[in-house]
Design a protein around this nucleic acid. Structure first.
Ligand SMILES: [Zn+2]
Ligand SMILES: [Zn+2]
Ligand SMILES: [Zn+2]
Ligand SMILES: [Zn+2]
Lengths: 129, 129
DNA sequence: CATGACGCTGAGAATCATTGTCAAATCCGC
DNA sequence: GCGGATTTGACAATGATTCTCAGCGTCATG
């Protein structure tokens, strides 16, 4: 059976940051925030914690245009995101028809083990041009 | 005005590979293929050529799960892809309703300069499990 | 509460795709 | 053919992420 992850100060600190943040943030940004708060956590540990959380589906991960991975604590269940390129502010969105469409396309072409990525990027109303 | 790009052996070679390939491939894969064909082109040059082609919208680019950028010569116009994770084989797909849905979602939330990414990944019929 | 086993941490090194550097080679209009 | 701007390529540099591994912390157990 799978070992339960241990309850460490560092992991709690990372989770706390994610709970405070509204939008997506990179591992390095989270590391910086922790440092500012004085709850310093090693960068490697931040990366590892986020990986674990992502595998456990407790956080969502996506890549921005620069290829950096961003993380966010999201609500459960499959959904997509409308993300501000500038500040990371995020709106969770659902598109039931898209889900069906994607599965249908894949099936029609004989693909299996299908998954899809769908993100909408833009500049939010409170960010300058 | 913009200078026209020069017609060099290297650029022609990269374009030729893209024309032969059916699916998406990374810069390094294309570099390897060129080496095998004896038409050696420097790796930096392959990267630069692909960048130029991508900016000119002559090729599409996307990232796989590992964060590598893959390129493919696609048909003109906005479309998305159904990509085999294993061999890169690709089917271009269109989803008019998705386009409208994405724009609507963004507008409703006051986002501007909107773009979206949508890719479907799976294993194609001719690839082993 | 003490103990031990084993997961967790973190500083630094290593990885690896991608980009930058710059002298030499190549285009191309004239 | 010339000459100047562009392009090339070997190599170094970057930068996000992962790996290493000795020391620490957690936690089930008695
Ligand atoms: Zn914003
Ligand atoms: Zn979906
Ligand atoms: Zn395949
Ligand atoms: Zn689209």
């Amino acid at each position: 059976m799978v070992e339960a992850p241990r309850n460490t100060r560092q992991r709690r600190a990372v989770v706390a940051i994610l709970e405070d943040l509204d939008g997506f943030a990179s591992a390095q940004e989270i590391h910086d925030i922790l440092k500012k708060r004085g709850e310093s956590v090693g960068l490697s540990t931040v990366y590892r914690s986020l990986q674990v959380l992502a595998e456990a589906a407790e956080v969502d991960a996506l890549r921005n245009d620069d290829g950096e991975v961003l993380y966010r604590q999201c609500s459960a269940g499959h959904h997509h995101h409308l993300v501000c390129r500038s500040c990371g502010r995020t709106v969770e969105v659902e598109g039931p028809t898209v889900e069906r469409w994607a599965d249908k396309i894949a099936a029609e072409n004989g693909f299996r083990d299908v998954a899809h990525t769908l993100e909408i990027f833009g500049t939010c109303a409170s960010c300058p041009s």
